[in-house]
Simulated assay, not measured.
Amino acid sequence: MVIVEEKCMQSVPPPPYAPNGTAPPPPFPGGHRGAIKLSDLAPHLLLKIVYMMFPQTPGINEGKIERQRKTLCWLSTHLRLVNRSFYIACAHVLRSTYLPAYNSMIRPPYSSDPFPFSSSTSTSSVETLQRETKVLDLFIALKVHEDVMLDDSSLHLEREDSFKDLFDLMQPRSRLEDLVRHYGVREGVVHTNQTGVNASSSSSSIFRGNNSGTGSMSTGKQTSDPAPVPFSSLSISFSPRRVGLVLTASGRKRTIVDVARTRDEKLEVTAKKLARQLKAWLSDC
């Protein structure tokens, strides 16, 4: 039996809440207020969610391998494009999955290193200096499409030349650019400082100095320690027999170094020759 006293029924309500000047703690880490979005989660949690999108139990609707390939295609063509957070998580999964297939396509004597300096789920996965990473991403975009088409129809035939341009030209060229960056920084003739020396002004001054015909900078004095070239202004013109180093400044392109190579010459050897020739070219500026 419950006895309710009459005085309790007639008690006045509690006073209204009065803030004491201190803000309540945020409902989520990081200061989020209101509803939190899925992309606001920590990178490792978002990556875990992406992994959970893959089929966990075989035998539902279709084979597990086919469903996995469809999920990979969906990551590449849809989820990856939602925002930056999803791009990083999807890129991590896609690159890790397709790297063995990519490496199997590398043709001797070429080498490969397509992953960024930090392959973790961070901003470096988007803003990477590693130019071969773009070739890996192009390979993935083509590969996921071909895999799904093969699963959907036995009549689909993968063309033998589908990946020819990627691995005959784009892969060795981008890999060579990465190697030139590596050896050029070591030689002190290339820099990767994105916030330091302005790339366009630095390259333009090199253009002016080399075009003066006097072998000196605009001051007329020989510099014993020439300024390094920004890597963002350098690119490679690639062919099986010759390789050129191209400098771009103010919308102008100019081949500043040109070296011969043999078909069986490793890219590392060619990159070292280009770095040495670049050092000599800068000394003459």
Rank of each mutant, 00 (worst) to 15 (best):
E132H: 01
D165T: 11
M217W: 15
S120M: 02
G215N: 10
V144K: 05
V189K: 01
G188A: 05
L150P: 01
G209N: 04
N198C: 13
D151C: 09
N198L: 06
L150C: 14
S153M: 02
S154E: 11
S154Q: 08
L136H: 05
S201T: 15
P114G: 05
F207L: 11
P172S: 07
M217G: 09
G196T: 03
D165H: 12
F163K: 09
G209W: 03
E187R: 10
R131E: 05
D178S: 05
F167H: 07
E187I: 02
L138S: 15
T192L: 05
D161G: 09
S204Q: 08
T121D: 12
F115V: 06
L138G: 07
D161Q: 13
S203N: 04
Q171T: 11
H156A: 08
L176M: 04
Q194V: 10
N193L: 11
S118R: 12
V197S: 13
K221Y: 10
L157V: 15
E158H: 10
T128H: 02
V180C: 02
S118H: 11
D147S: 11
M149Y: 12
K143I: 01
S118Q: 08
S203Y: 01
R181H: 01
V189F: 02
G196L: 04
K143G: 05
S200K: 04
S120L: 14
S203M: 06
T214G: 00
L142N: 14
S203W: 00
V148D: 03
P172K: 04
K164D: 13
S154T: 13
R173Y: 01
F117V: 11
T123Q: 09
L142W: 12
H182Q: 10
T123N: 08
G215S: 08
S162Q: 10
G220R: 12
S200Q: 15
V180K: 03
K134L: 14
F139Y: 13
E127L: 07
D113E: 05
L136W: 00
Y183F: 15
R175L: 06
L166M: 08
S124M: 14
D151N: 10
N211Q: 14
S212W: 00
G188D: 06
N193M: 07
K164V: 06
L142H: 14
I206S: 03
S118W: 10
